[in-house]
Simulated assay, not measured.
Amino acid sequence: MKIKLLIVDDETLLIKGMRYGLGDEYEIDEAYDGQEAVKKSRNKEYDIIILDLMLPKKDGLEVCKEIRTFSQVPIIMLTAKGEDMTKVMGLEFGADDYMTKPFNLLELKARIKAILRRTKKIDENANHSEFEIGEFKVNTLGRKIIRNGEDINLTGKEFDLFLFLATNKNKVFSREALLEKIWGYDYYGDLRTVDVHIRRLREKIEYNSSNPKYILTKWGAGYYFKD
Protein backbone atom coordinates (compact mmCIF):
# COMPACT_ATOMS: atom_id res chain seq x y z
CA MET A 1 0.00 0.00 0.00
CA LYS A 2 1.34 3.42 -0.95
CA ILE A 3 2.11 6.05 1.67
CA LYS A 4 -0.55 8.78 1.56
CA LEU A 5 1.19 12.15 1.49
CA LEU A 6 -0.26 15.66 1.39
CA ILE A 7 2.04 18.43 0.12
CA VAL A 8 0.92 21.95 1.00
CA ASP A 9 2.73 24.75 -0.83
CA ASP A 10 1.75 27.60 -3.15
CA GLU A 11 4.79 27.05 -5.38
CA THR A 12 3.63 24.88 -8.28
CA LEU A 13 7.15 24.10 -9.48
CA LEU A 14 8.25 23.00 -6.02
CA ILE A 15 5.34 20.58 -5.72
CA LYS A 16 6.06 19.28 -9.22
CA GLY A 17 9.70 18.69 -8.27
CA MET A 18 8.70 16.94 -5.05
CA ARG A 19 6.29 14.71 -6.96
CA TYR A 20 9.08 13.73 -9.35
CA GLY A 21 11.69 13.25 -6.64
CA LEU A 22 9.57 11.24 -4.22
CA GLY A 23 8.74 8.61 -6.82
CA ASP A 24 5.96 6.08 -7.20
CA GLU A 25 5.90 4.76 -3.64
CA TYR A 26 3.79 7.73 -2.50
CA GLU A 27 0.15 8.56 -3.17
CA ILE A 28 0.48 12.36 -3.32
CA ASP A 29 -2.26 14.96 -2.95
CA GLU A 30 -1.66 18.69 -3.29
CA ALA A 31 -3.01 21.81 -1.61
CA TYR A 32 -2.04 25.32 -2.64
CA ASP A 33 -3.44 27.34 0.27
CA GLY A 34 -4.16 26.90 3.97
CA GLN A 35 -7.92 26.49 3.69
CA GLU A 36 -7.59 23.76 1.08
CA ALA A 37 -5.04 21.99 3.28
CA VAL A 38 -7.36 21.88 6.29
CA LYS A 39 -10.29 20.72 4.14
CA LYS A 40 -8.32 17.87 2.57
CA SER A 41 -6.93 16.84 5.96
CA ARG A 42 -10.46 16.55 7.33
CA ASN A 43 -11.74 14.54 4.38
CA LYS A 44 -8.89 12.04 4.06
CA GLU A 45 -6.48 10.27 6.37
CA TYR A 46 -2.86 10.91 5.42
CA ASP A 47 0.25 9.17 6.66
CA ILE A 48 2.22 12.44 6.66
CA ILE A 49 1.82 16.11 5.68
CA ILE A 50 4.53 18.37 4.25
CA LEU A 51 3.40 21.89 5.17
CA ASP A 52 4.90 25.18 4.00
CA LEU A 53 4.87 28.07 6.43
CA MET A 54 4.00 30.89 4.01
CA LEU A 55 0.59 30.15 2.45
CA PRO A 56 -2.37 32.16 1.11
CA LYS A 57 -5.62 32.37 3.13
CA LYS A 58 -4.16 30.62 6.20
CA ASP A 59 -0.47 30.41 7.05
CA GLY A 60 1.24 27.17 8.01
CA LEU A 61 1.05 27.85 11.75
CA GLU A 62 -2.72 28.34 11.59
CA VAL A 63 -3.10 25.21 9.48
CA CYS A 64 -0.96 23.16 11.85
CA LYS A 65 -2.88 24.36 14.89
CA GLU A 66 -6.25 23.61 13.26
CA ILE A 67 -5.23 20.15 12.05
CA ARG A 68 -4.13 19.30 15.58
CA THR A 69 -7.71 19.78 16.79
CA PHE A 70 -8.82 16.69 14.86
CA SER A 71 -5.74 14.72 13.75
CA GLN A 72 -2.33 13.62 15.02
CA VAL A 73 -0.93 12.99 11.53
CA PRO A 74 2.85 13.65 11.43
CA ILE A 75 3.61 17.12 10.04
CA ILE A 76 6.93 18.31 8.60
CA MET A 77 6.94 22.09 8.30
CA LEU A 78 8.94 23.90 5.61
CA THR A 79 10.44 27.25 6.59
CA ALA A 80 12.67 29.81 4.93
CA LYS A 81 16.32 30.02 5.92
CA GLY A 82 16.97 31.98 9.11
CA GLU A 83 13.43 31.86 10.53
CA ASP A 84 14.58 30.38 13.83
CA MET A 85 11.73 31.75 15.93
CA THR A 86 9.18 30.48 13.43
CA LYS A 87 10.70 27.00 13.55
CA VAL A 88 10.22 26.91 17.31
CA MET A 89 6.66 28.24 16.93
CA GLY A 90 5.94 25.50 14.40
CA LEU A 91 6.96 22.89 16.95
CA GLU A 92 4.89 24.67 19.61
CA PHE A 93 1.85 24.54 17.33
CA GLY A 94 2.22 20.78 16.88
CA ALA A 95 4.62 20.16 13.99
CA ASP A 96 6.75 17.04 14.41
CA ASP A 97 9.75 18.30 12.47
CA TYR A 98 10.88 21.10 10.16
CA MET A 99 13.12 21.55 7.16
CA THR A 100 14.66 24.74 5.83
CA LYS A 101 14.21 25.72 2.17
CA PRO A 102 15.97 24.94 -0.08
CA PHE A 103 16.29 21.31 0.94
CA ASN A 104 17.57 18.06 -0.49
CA LEU A 105 14.84 15.65 -1.62
CA LEU A 106 16.89 12.68 -0.45
CA GLU A 107 16.93 14.15 3.06
CA LEU A 108 13.17 14.76 2.90
CA LYS A 109 12.60 11.11 1.92
CA ALA A 110 14.86 10.00 4.77
CA ARG A 111 12.92 12.06 7.27
CA ILE A 112 9.55 10.81 6.02
CA LYS A 113 10.70 7.20 6.27
CA ALA A 114 12.25 7.77 9.69
CA ILE A 115 9.02 9.23 11.09
CA LEU A 116 6.92 6.38 9.69
CA ARG A 117 9.45 3.75 10.75
CA ARG A 118 9.58 5.12 14.28
CA THR A 119 5.79 5.14 14.56
CA LYS A 120 5.56 1.53 13.39
CA LYS A 121 8.46 0.41 15.56
CA ILE A 122 6.93 1.77 18.76
CA ASP A 123 3.65 0.00 18.05
CA GLU A 124 5.40 -3.29 17.23
CA ASN A 125 7.68 -3.19 20.26
CA ALA A 126 4.88 -2.63 22.78
CA ASN A 127 4.13 -5.84 24.68
CA HIS A 128 0.41 -5.01 24.88
CA SER A 129 -1.85 -2.66 23.01
CA GLU A 130 -2.92 -1.21 26.36
CA PHE A 131 -1.01 -1.10 29.62
CA GLU A 132 -0.44 1.15 32.62
CA ILE A 133 2.56 3.24 33.65
CA GLY A 134 2.01 4.89 37.00
CA GLU A 135 -1.33 6.71 36.83
CA PHE A 136 -1.32 6.67 33.02
CA LYS A 137 -3.11 4.13 30.86
CA VAL A 138 -1.29 3.85 27.54
CA ASN A 139 -3.02 2.72 24.34
CA THR A 140 -0.41 1.99 21.68
CA LEU A 141 -2.94 1.21 18.94
CA GLY A 142 -4.84 4.46 19.42
CA ARG A 143 -1.54 6.18 20.25
CA LYS A 144 -2.99 7.99 23.25
CA ILE A 145 -2.67 8.11 27.01
CA ILE A 146 -5.44 8.37 29.58
CA ARG A 147 -5.28 9.70 33.14
CA ASN A 148 -8.23 9.52 35.53
CA GLY A 149 -10.53 8.57 32.68
CA GLU A 150 -9.59 11.56 30.53
CA ASP A 151 -7.72 11.41 27.23
CA ILE A 152 -4.54 13.48 27.02
CA ASN A 153 -4.27 14.78 23.47
CA LEU A 154 -0.68 14.26 22.25
CA THR A 155 0.89 14.79 18.86
CA GLY A 156 2.65 11.82 17.25
CA LYS A 157 6.10 12.89 18.39
CA GLU A 158 4.87 13.75 21.90
CA PHE A 159 3.39 10.27 22.21
CA ASP A 160 6.60 8.67 20.91
CA LEU A 161 8.66 10.71 23.37
CA PHE A 162 6.39 9.85 26.31
CA LEU A 163 6.33 6.13 25.49
CA PHE A 164 10.08 5.91 24.98
CA LEU A 165 10.95 7.68 28.23
CA ALA A 166 8.20 5.93 30.23
CA THR A 167 9.30 2.48 29.10
CA ASN A 168 12.91 3.32 29.99
CA LYS A 169 12.23 4.62 33.49
CA ASN A 170 15.02 6.38 35.37
CA LYS A 171 17.39 6.17 32.39
CA VAL A 172 18.81 9.55 31.39
CA PHE A 173 18.90 10.37 27.68
CA SER A 174 20.73 13.34 26.20
CA ARG A 175 18.98 15.56 23.66
CA GLU A 176 21.20 14.11 20.95
CA ALA A 177 20.19 10.57 21.93
CA LEU A 178 16.51 11.49 21.95
CA LEU A 179 16.79 13.07 18.51
CA GLU A 180 18.29 9.83 17.20
CA LYS A 181 15.84 7.56 19.04
CA ILE A 182 12.62 9.50 18.44
CA TRP A 183 13.29 11.26 15.15
CA GLY A 184 15.16 8.23 13.87
CA TYR A 185 18.00 9.78 11.89
CA ASP A 186 21.26 11.62 12.38
CA TYR A 187 19.84 15.04 13.13
CA TYR A 188 21.89 18.07 12.16
CA GLY A 189 19.32 20.65 13.19
CA ASP A 190 18.51 22.51 16.34
CA LEU A 191 18.54 20.68 19.67
CA ARG A 192 15.68 22.97 20.72
CA THR A 193 13.42 20.51 18.89
CA VAL A 194 13.71 18.17 21.87
CA ASP A 195 13.35 20.96 24.44
CA VAL A 196 10.15 22.23 22.80
CA HIS A 197 8.60 18.75 22.71
CA ILE A 198 9.58 18.09 26.33
CA ARG A 199 8.02 21.40 27.39
CA ARG A 200 4.80 20.69 25.47
CA LEU A 201 4.64 17.18 26.91
CA ARG A 202 5.09 18.46 30.45
CA GLU A 203 2.32 21.00 29.95
CA LYS A 204 -0.02 18.17 29.01
CA ILE A 205 0.85 15.40 31.48
CA GLU A 206 2.15 17.22 34.55
CA TYR A 207 -0.07 18.79 37.20
CA ASN A 208 2.49 21.58 37.48
CA SER A 209 4.78 21.80 34.43
CA SER A 210 7.16 24.17 36.24
CA ASN A 211 7.64 21.55 38.96
CA PRO A 212 7.39 18.27 37.02
CA LYS A 213 6.80 14.94 38.73
CA TYR A 214 7.32 12.56 35.84
CA ILE A 215 9.61 13.95 33.15
CA LEU A 216 12.65 15.32 34.93
CA THR A 217 15.85 17.03 33.88
CA LYS A 218 19.28 15.87 34.98
CA TRP A 219 21.25 19.06 34.45
CA GLY A 220 24.08 18.69 32.00
CA ALA A 221 23.00 15.15 31.06
CA GLY A 222 19.46 15.04 29.67
CA TYR A 223 15.90 13.98 30.46
CA TYR A 224 14.39 10.95 32.18
CA PHE A 225 11.02 9.57 33.32
CA LYS A 226 10.48 8.96 37.02
CA ASP A 227 7.57 6.70 37.99
Rank of each mutant, 00 (worst) to 15 (best):
L6V: 09
L6F: 01
V8D: 03
T12I: 13
L14Q: 12
G17L: 07
M18T: 08
Y20S: 12
G21L: 03
G21V: 00
E25D: 15
I28R: 06
E30Q: 12
D33S: 05
K39E: 15
R42Y: 11
I50N: 03
D52R: 09
L55K: 04
P56D: 07
K57L: 12
K57W: 01
D59E: 04
G60W: 01
C64M: 02
E66P: 06
E66S: 09
R68L: 03
Q72N: 15
I75H: 04
L78G: 06
A80C: 01
E92I: 10
E92F: 01
D96S: 12
N104W: 00
E107L: 14
L108S: 12
R111E: 07
L116N: 10
E124G: 00
N127P: 10
I133R: 07
E135H: 10
F136Y: 13
K144V: 11
K144D: 10
I146D: 11
R147Q: 13
N148P: 00
N153F: 00
D160A: 11
D160W: 01
L163C: 06
T167S: 14
N168I: 07
V172Q: 07
R175P: 05
L179R: 05
E180A: 13
G184V: 02
G184K: 02
G189W: 07
G189V: 10
V194S: 04
V196G: 06
S209R: 11
N211S: 11
N211T: 10
Y214N: 05
Y214T: 06
G220P: 02
G222P: 02
Y224H: 11
K226I: 00
